[in-house]
Nucleic acid binder design. Sequence first.
DNA 1: CATGTGAGTGACTGTACACTCACTCTCGGG
DNA 2: CCCGAGAGTGAGTGTACAGTCACTCACATG
Lengths: 186, 186
Amino acid sequence: MPAPTVRLSTAEARRSIVIDSAIEVFARTGYLGTPIAAIAEHARISPAYVSKLFPNKEALFVAALDECFDRAGAALSRGADTGVDRSPDGILSAMGGAYADLIADRSLLMLQVHAQSAATVPEIGAALRRGIESITTLVRSRSGASDEAVQRFVAYGQLCHLIVTTGLDEVPAEWARLLTAGIRHP
Amino acid sequence: MPAPTVRLSTAEARRSIVIDSAIEVFARTGYLGTPIAAIAEHARISPAYVSKLFPNKEALFVAALDECFDRAGAALSRGADTGVDRSPDGILSAMGGAYADLIADRSLLMLQVHAQSAATVPEIGAALRRGIESITTLVRSRSGASDEAVQRFVAYGQLCHLIVTTGLDEVPAEWARLLTAGIRHP
DNA sequence: CATGTGAGTGACTGTACACTCACTCTCGGG
DNA sequence: CCCGAGAGTGAGTGTACAGTCACTCACATG
């Protein structure tokens, strides 16, 4: 009988699989809280090989974060196209809806929170700024909304982070409902 | 000559000194990124004694976080009293100003960010929710503003966290100025 | 001055983890 | 069929750190 022979793939393909795993696992346990071995296990690969694919843990985290912002940008872009109301505010709210759909699984959002916490690592801080920049300029240019409206968009996005990290949407209290009101829950 | 004899203090006094140190050091390097020894050094105390004063690192972090929210609450409360404009929105903006003054040194704010990142540790998540609750209800009751206005207050507070963690107020670019516009910078 | 209580520490232990290295295995090209 | 390049790993190494323990020392009280 044909034993399930091990098929090799290219390092490039492995890298992107590992990045997917990294997004998920880093999102759950944070930068310092995640051993490389946990990501390796999730990617069904040996820890040694992860270390061979990325020069160090920091670079792996940055790669995951970059990918995360790429996906967010793509989702926002799609959202900007799908709205019915073509006014700036209409587009903005369509983008908000698309973003809400995207972060339904929490990983992208949590990764951003962990990145903020680890932003004192220079490479991580830089990646975070890059990401915010691309989101901000994309929202600005695709919606055509005013600076104030874009700022508000980002501010409520951050509120969304707070709600998710603290599980506020599960808290059955008046103050919690006040904060989550009108926010699309995952 | 009188050798500088070692004066003992009470454990209670030490505890609060250690909490002060913990706020500062945890704020700089985060929960997992901070060794107990770093806090001990800042408090000019042995690591062993820190471990004797607090059952574990988690409890120390929670104590620091609680203290942090206490200070924030006190500052907001003071702000609510000092405003000239006694309308809800006037009081709200006075509270915002007081908060901005308080977080000039970034420690309180950074600690919150790190707490969000570590919120999967049950005790830390609970402390964070307690803190948010007390802030939210305080802002609500002292200002008398609408639910929407309070939600907006918190959302822009979170935007403030983003700005500080990423050092956006130092970034000389249009997109950065868009996000920081109108936010009181430290 | 004797003594008990509590402040404070040095040295240690166990563990977790990032990263390395020598090695094996796969498979495409000659 | 063979061989070399590259995929992939097991077993380690060094280090950092949380928490413990036996101990010393200060000082208030009688």
